[in-house]
């Protein structure tokens, strides 16, 4: 029997795609593997051990940076999600209004302007404020992170809102629900998966940020990524691999959760 002609086939495409997946994962897999190396090299395998996880755990700097990273990510993703949900409610499902494009451009600015430019701008601006107020706390980092997290929290909420059936709210209104009751009983429950997805995205983005943090932080305010960036200048030990692996694990869990959340009852 003759083979059926496969209209979807394109010569070499599958090979390139497989290569692509391999290339995407191989470096990460190696990175994870060497985090369990018993030796102090990231190239020569000397047996399995949790030694570098223990080293990282005992490292005061790593501990401080971890706590700082988590504090910033929690605050920033919370603030960003709150602001983004409100902004999404204001900019979605309305008739076109004056300033809508401007509002949309502003919300998405962090996605368009190169991070290094924003970083430099914040360095200059916050330096001015630091001089005039004397405040040098984590507030600057939290504010900066909140700003660039907003579009990431905004987009899933907006997508959810756009996919939502307008008549549901009208039906509720028809059934004697006041505007506040409509929001609480109909809009919010429908929106919730989007809000959660947005908050998680914002959390991951904040946790991973290097460039803006590097420019905005005051002395002694290293987060995990900036700490790692600093360490790369020295001799690299699998300790970095161990920290990376933990961060990777957090991201992977979050992404998978995000992935399933954004598919809930659409």
């Amino acid at each position: 029997m003759a083979r059926t002609f496969d209209i979807r086939k394109q010569t070499g495409f599958t090979a390139l795609a497989i290569t692509c997946f391999a290339v995407l994962y191989m470096p990460i897999v190696l990175l994870v593997v060497y985090s369990f190396n018993a030796g102090s090299s990231i190239a020569i395998w000397e047996g399995f051990s949790f030694r570098w996880y223990a080293t990282a755990w005992d490292n005061d700097q790593v501990q401080a940076a971890t706590i700082r990273s988590l504090v910033i990510a929690c605050c920033a993703s919370g603030i960003a999600t709150f602001a983004a949900v409100l902004a999404a409610l204001a900019t979605t499902r309305t008739k076109p209004w004056k300033g809508q494009t401007l509002a949309f451009a502003m919300v998405n600015q962090p996605l368009m302007v190169p991070e290094i430019v924003t970083a430099v701008a914040l360095l200059i601006f916050f330096a001015m404020i630091k001089v005039s107020t004397g405040y040098t706390g984590l507030g600057y980092l939290i504010l900066a992170h909140s700003a660039f997290c907003i579009p990431f929290a905004y987009l899933p909420v907006r997508a959810r809102l756009q996919g939502m059936d307008l008549t549901l709210e009208q039906a509720a209104s028809d059934l004697y629900a006041t505007p506040f009751q409509i929001f609480r009983r109909i809009t919010l429950p429908q929106l919730f998966p989007g809000i959660l997805a947005g908050a998680m995205l914002a959390f991951v983005i904040s946790l991973d940020d290097v460039v803006i943090t590097e420019f905005v932080k005051s002395a002694g305010q290293d987060t995990l990524p900036t700490y790692m960036l600093g360490q790369l200048r020295r001799v690299v030990t699998p300790e970095i691999n161990a920290i990376s692996t933990v961060l990777l694990a957090i991201s992977v869990v979050m992404v998978i959760a995000f992935f399933f959340l954004s598919r809930v009852r659409k």
Partner: peptide, 30 residues
């Protein structure tokens, strides 16, 4: 929400996050 008229929508507009009974109870609760 203050008019004593109710609508059956073309798309039905049933609340997807509620059960059948919860949907029917909604107006009464409100």
């Amino acid at each position: 929400h203050k008019r004593p008229v109710n609508t059956v929508f073309q798309s039905y507009a049933l609340f997807p996050h509620m059960t059948v009974a919860q949907n029917i109870a909604f107006g009464l609760e409100m």
